[in-house]
Structure formats: structure tokens, C-alpha cells
Design a protein around this nucleic acid. Structure first.
Lengths: 207, 207
DNA sequence: GTCTATACACCGATAGAC
DNA sequence: GTCTATCGGTGTATAGAC
């Protein structure tokens, strides 16, 4: 059992090196733009030469892929941490959930670009890196199911609304709150469209 | 007077060359991705060498900028052409207007990426190229004003909703209609939020 | 005026020495 | 593991052909 999970000294050292490279890559992306990362720049930030990175990552795309997975795993963690703290009121729970996702995305524009836009030509996330993204959406579906909403089209409408607010905020008012302050109103508008009861604590009950 | 507007033979020839290069650039972008355009590829498509492009465009960014302006001018043309054909019913007018914009964006993913996402590191549209984009939004504000809506926050909510539907359609169901078929429902949801009357032909009249 | 040839610095990636 | 050396390809500047 231990042999399976325990990591050797080499493995941990290797993992730490990978992590250092990833951090440097995020820094480079935030400084010069996601699509403007260069391996020479990343290598210099960790005190290496560019070819040495190839021992840790098989290609530049693999580096992007690791960043993608890291971002979505971080997002999933934020969302699951929220599960225990959601209020009983459906609308208030929705508002808090939306706010958490909105803030997470707006907080790091470059991360959001990698997570939610296909802007790197030729980059396609691996199944492993994509898994936490699927899990985030699945978790949200379960939340809605608990609120009595199982309308798939309604969920699609919600994702469009939320991602639209995030994109507009980042594209047209970065650092501001012009769309951030519309979030509650948007969620309520959608909740009304979904026939979610207005305020009471209890969930809707189908006849 | 004629001297002012008429174009010399050289000007027209130059304009035609620029247009040929732009078309080749669009082709290259659709084939390899917007951010993966190379000047050598574009030049080859028009039967030139890469450095020759520099007589027509001062830089690669200027090429992107011309494409950006072309895309938004085309979008503005589609929208203004619509003005004369909008139905009297506010909701039906809104639905038709939204559909025209949605279709225009979804019809060409690469064009949409250039118009509405900041995915090319270092590219910032010039004031001249940005002007028709502003005009499209202004025209929409005027349309809403005619419908009795002057709520700026409401307009922001609308742009978020519409752009969100477009992005989701392109990102998660390219070539399909999973979000396209939600468009009317979304517009109606927003119209209700804006207290737009349900069906009658006449516009709302403020006291 | 319109384009080509040449050149340069930088890119991702590979081979092989240590 | 990390290095040096190197490859083909990139955007771009410039000199000069016609």
C-alpha cells in the first residue's frame, strides 16, 4: 500500500522542479501574454537553459496542458470548498456560487483565457487536464438538481449568462466592477426564468 | 471635387493588392488559427515574398488591425441593413436583431476571435479600426431607446448575455445549435427583466 | 513605386557530451 | 539532469533591382 502512494525522494524533487517551472510559466504569461510565453524566458526564470525544460515537459504544449489542468483543479477546489457553506435559500445559494466562480475567473485574466478560451493555436487539453473542468460543471448540475432544476437547456442558458458577464468584465472593464455588480441581478433574472421560488428556505416540491 | 474622391489608377491598384493580402490572411487564419498566421504563408498565397508585404502593411500587427476593422465594418453593415426591416413589435425586433448578430459571429469563428477576444499578444486595435465596433454598440443603444429602454446597466446585461451565448456555442458546440436555439428564450428573459411589454405592436409610452 | 535578396535576432525542438 | 551546439522557421529591417 505504502509503495503505491508514497513518493520517493527523486519523485518529490522532480515534482517540485515541475512546480517551479509552472510558476515561472504563469509569471511569464501574466507579464507578456499567454500566447507570448517563450521557453527561453521560462527557463531563465528558474535558472535553467531552455532545452533543459524538455526533461520535465515533452513540449511547450505539454506545459500549457499542465497549466490548464492546474487552473481547473484549483477552480474545482474553490467550488467544492463552497459546498459546505452554501445557504439554504436557493437564490442565495445560487448567488454565492456564481459570485465564487465569477471572482475566481476575473481574479486572473490570463488563467481565465487559458481555461475558457481556445486562443492558443494547436492547443487541445488532454483528457486528464480536462477532467476537473467537467467535474466543475457536474458539481453545478448536482447543485441545481438539489434546487429542483433539471432543465438541461436552462443550465446551458446559465453557463452562457455567467461566462458572458465574466468575459465582458475582463474585456471591457478590466480591474473595474461594471459587470461584477450586475451578477446578482443576472442570477435572479435567470432564477425567475427557471421558476425558482423567490425567497423561502424550503425547496420547490413537484406534485 | 473629383480630385478629392476619385482614386487614381495607382490607388485602386494598391487598394486591390491590400484586399488580396487581407483575403489571403483570412484564409491562412481559418486554416492554421488566428495566432498562427505567418507572413511567409500569406505572401505565398498572393504570389509574393514575405518582405514585399511590408510595402502594403507596415507590420504584422497592422495586418491584424486591418482585418479587425474589416470585420467590424462588415458587422456594422449587416446591422444597419437590418434597421429598415425590423418589425414593429419590440420583442420581435429584439429577437431579429439578436439573431442577426449571433449568426454573424458564429458564422466565422476566427473572425469572432479577432473581433471579440484579445487573444493576440500585443495587438491593440487602432482608433480607426475600433470605430465601427463602437458604432455597432451605439446603433443598438439607439434601437433600445426607441423601444423605451435607456437603462445602461440593462444594456450591459444584454451584451453579456448575447456574447455569452455566442462564446458557448462556438467553444462547446461548434457547428451545432445547442446555444443558438436558446437565443429567443434568452432575449425574452432579458426583455421581461427590462419590463418590456409582452406582444403589442405599439411602443411603451412614458407618462 | 513595387518588389526581391539578404541578413539578423529570436523561436521551439533535437542530439549528444558530461 | 543539465549543458552546449545546432536545426529549420519566424517577424522584421534594409539595400537595391527594375
Amino acid at each position: 500500500m505504502l509503495e503505491k502512494t508514497a513518493k520517493s525522494w527523486q519523485d518529490r524533487r522532480r515534482e517540485s522542479a515541475r512546480q517551479e517551472i509552472l510558476t515561472a510559466a504563469w509569471d511569464a504569461a501574466r507579464e507578456h501574454g499567454l500566447g507570448a510565453i517563450t521557453l527561453r524566458d521560462v527557463a531563465e526564470r528558474v535558472g535553467m537553459r531552455a532545452p533543459s525544460l524538455y526533461w520535465h515537459f515533452p513540449s511547450k504544449m505539454a506545459l500549457y496542458d499542465a497549466m490548464f489542468g492546474q487552473a481547473w483543479r484549483s477552480c474545482l477546489e474553490v467550488q467544492t470548498d463552497l459546498d459546505t457553506r452554501l445557504p439554504a435559500s436557493p437564490r442565495r445559494a445560487l448567488r454565492m456560487d456564481a459570485r465564487a466562480f465569477f471572482d475566481f475567473c476575473v481574479q486572473d485574466p490570463v488563467r481565465h483565457q487559458l481555461m475558457n478560451q481556445r486562443s492558443i493555436p494547436g492547443f487541445v487539453p488532454s483528457a486528464e487536464s480536462y477532467a476537473p473542468a467537467v467535474e466543475v460543471l457536474e458539481r453545478f448540475r448536482r447543485l441545481l438538481a438539489r434546487l429542483g432544476i433539471a432543465d438541461d437547456a436552462g443550465v446551458d442558458l446559465y453557463t452562457a449568462l455567467l461566462s458572458g458577464l465574466i468575459d465582458q468584465q475582463l474585456a471591457n472593464d478590466p480591474g473595474g466592477d461594471r459587470w461584477a455588480r450586475l451578477l446578482d441581478r443576472a442570477v435572479d433574472m435567470w432564477a425567475t426564468e427557471m421558476n425558482l421560488p423567490d425567497d423561502p428556505e424550503r425547496l420547490t416540491e413537484e406534485p
